[in-house]
Design a protein around this nucleic acid. Structure first.
Length: 359
DNA sequence: CATCCACCGGAAATGTTGGGAC
DNA sequence: GTCCCAACATTTCCGGTGGATG
């Protein structure tokens, strides 16, 4: 039952960078012209924004790939490197291609990086910048913005902030002056085409039914979810990917998308997410307190030490930034200042499956 | 109107790790 | 080894907030 339809799984994996994109030509053109040698400003900074699964990260990676070899590049996912120091360390490692030990002082590191960036052109991508800003403020961005010789650029990527202006201090923004590029959600037709082109490379010919693909494309505008979904269906399918296979793996696919998003986070993030999933079966709208007690129960059952509620409050914000939950902050409601939290299932079960799949 | 509730979120306190100097 | 320091994770502390309650 394995590998019946799957010839090469790589084109369906999240890391796969296709030679050419189906869409996003406009955005790419803007980016390319920004970094071309002739344009006066190699010094321009960029801010890419738009919902998850719209190709921001891939577009940025593509740009890095197309830069001349002599340009030094670095790609920093701020989900993992969420403090100034950690990001600097990673940046140093990528620039110098060596391991940088802990205990190297920030200012020393800053000086080394600064020296290096004077000698050649450098482009740094900060993906998921929201996490760094939330956790550590804009110290790193300020430092990077000050590096602005003609030879240094920063590309920031955010799924939530259209504009960095409100998120960073004025001095930082005024030295960065990033050009903003917005990414719109993919249409169903675009999702269809992208998945089709990946499927052609990954699957046996004629093993994918059109209706199956249509179903995915009409359900989610998030290409990341779409790919995960198609991948799961391909693994499950015996001779062909049909619409019913696709429906069958729907929730599994969403779960593995969630796991993919949470892969760089702590076990406690997973526990919290699990808690929210369980609690929302009874009650769609949850409050922090309920979630925290639920979380402590799970910890007790699994014999783990729970973290404090202050900490969990931050973790909830992480889940919110990942768009796994929606949190409504409001001052008012029945208990003063609070958060109303609800689970986001981005590919919800529709009415039709209700009767059948209920156990 | 005063007080309580249940939470937010900033800041200080505490604990841990690992490098460098001696 | 011992001592000190930087960076970090987490906890502890505390001053809000604003409807509900009396």
């Amino acid at each position: 039952m394995t590998d019946n339809v799957l010839v090469d799984p790589a084109p369906l994996s999240p890391q796969y960078l296709p030679a050419e994109f189906v869409d996003r030509e406009d955005e790419q053109a803007v980016l390319t012209s920004n970094f071309s040698e002739v344009s006066n400003g190699f010094n321009s900074n960029l801010h890419l924004h738009g919902p998850r699964g719209t190709g921001k990260t891939h577009t940025a990676l593509k740009i890095l790939q197309n830069l001349p070899d002599k340009v030094t590049t670095a790609f920093i996912p701020s989900t993992i490197y969420d403090t100034e120091y950690k990001a600097l360390q990673e940046l140093g490692e990528q620039i110098f291609e060596e391991t940088i030990q802990e205990g190297y002082h920030t200012s020393k590191l800053q000086r080394r990086i600064e020296e290096r960036t004077q000698t050649g052109r450098t482009v740094v991508v900060l993906d998921e910048i929201d996490f760094l800003l939330m956790n550590d403020g804009d110290d790193l961005l300020y430092y990077l913005s000050r590096l602005k010789s003609q030879k240094f650029s920063v590309i920031t990527i955010s799924a939530h902030y259209q504009d960095l202006q409100k998120r960073v201090e004025e001095r930082t923004y005024s030295s960065l002056q990033p050009q903003r590029i917005g990414f719109e959600p993919y249409s169903a037709e675009q999702i269809f085409q992208i998945l089709l082109s990946r499927a052609r490379k990954a699957l046996k010919p004629r093993s994918l039914q059109r209706s199956a693909l249509t179903y995915i494309a009409s359900t989610t505008p998030n290409i990341q979810i779409g790919l995960t979904w198609l991948r799961q269906a391909a693994q499950k399918a015996e001779s062909a990917i049909t619409e019913s296979v696709v429906r069958e793996v729907k929730q599994d696919a969403y779960q593995s998308y969630v796991n993919y998003l949470l892969k760089d986070f702590t076990p406690h993030h997973h526990l919290i997410y699990e808690t929210i999933t369980q609690l929302s079966e009874d009650n769609e709208l949850l409050q922090t307190g309920e979630i925290y007690t639920g979380y402590k129960d799970i910890c007790k059952k699994t014999k783990q030490d729970p973290l404090s509620n202050r900490r969990i409050s931050d973790y909830l914000k992480h889940l919110e930034l990942l768009d796994l939950i929606t949190a409504d902050y409001h001052y008012g409601g029945s208990k003063g200042k609070t958060r109303d939290i609800r689970l986001n299932n981005q590919i919800p079960d529709k009415r039709d499956s209700e009767g059948k799949n209920q156990k």
